[in-house]
Simulated assay, not measured.
Amino acid sequence: MDLEFSGQLWFWRGPAPWHFVTVPDDGCRQIADAAPFVSYGWGCVPVRGQIGDTQFETSLIPKDGRYLVPVKTAVRRAEALELGDQVPIRLVIDA
C-alpha cells in the first residue's frame, strides 16, 4: 500500500520528546485496514517513508484513532524542516 499526503510538523514534549506528522483521516482508515496484517506491539505499523529526497524507515504510532509519523532529526535536518511546516510524505506499507 502506498500513501501520499501532506501534514503539519508538530512537536510532542512528553517524557520522550519527538517530532510527528499526523496522517489524515482517509489515510488512517486505509492503514487501519492493513494494520491487523502488519502491526506489532501496541499496534505500531512498520513503513518505508520519503520526505523530499530523504528516504527512511520508521513505525507509525497509533494515537486516539489516528496514526502518527515520527520524523527523525536526520530527516528534519536533511530536508530543512521546521515546526509548523507542511510536510509532503510518501509511505509504503508492505501488507
Rank of each mutant, 00 (worst) to 15 (best):
Y40Q: 06
Y40L: 04
Y40D: 05
Y40E: 05
G41A: 11
G41M: 04
W42C: 09
W42D: 14
G43K: 03
G43L: 08
C44N: 08
C44P: 01
C44L: 11
P46Q: 12
P46Y: 13
V47E: 03
R48G: 15
G49D: 05
I51L: 09
I51G: 02
I51F: 13
G52A: 14
G52M: 14
G52C: 13
D53V: 03
D53H: 04
D53G: 08
T54D: 03
T54C: 15
T54A: 11
Q55G: 11
Q55V: 07
Q55Y: 01
F56G: 03
F56L: 12
F56H: 12
F56C: 07
E57I: 06
E57K: 10
T58F: 14
L60D: 06
L60G: 07
L60T: 09
I61V: 13
I61L: 13
P62T: 05
P62I: 07
P62S: 06
P62G: 06
D64P: 00
D64I: 09
G65E: 08
R66H: 13
Y67H: 12
L68S: 00
V69R: 01
V69P: 00
P70S: 11
P70A: 11
P70Y: 07
K72V: 05
T73R: 10
T73I: 05
A74F: 10
A74Y: 11
V75F: 10
V75N: 02
V75Y: 01
V75P: 03
V75Q: 00
R76F: 03
R77N: 10
R77C: 05
R77L: 10
A78N: 08
A78G: 03
A78P: 00
A78T: 05
E79F: 11
E79D: 08
A80I: 04
A80Y: 05
L81M: 10
E82C: 11
E82P: 00
E82N: 12
E82W: 07
E82L: 11
E82K: 07
L83G: 09
L83Q: 04
L83R: 03
G84C: 13
G84M: 09
G84F: 13
D85C: 15
D85A: 15
D85F: 14
Q86N: 15
Q86K: 14
V87E: 00
V87I: 10
P88V: 15
P88G: 15
P88K: 12
I89W: 07
R90Q: 10
R90I: 04
L91A: 04
L91K: 00
V92A: 15
V92I: 14
I93R: 01
I93M: 04
I93L: 14
I93N: 00
I93V: 15
I93P: 02
D94M: 07
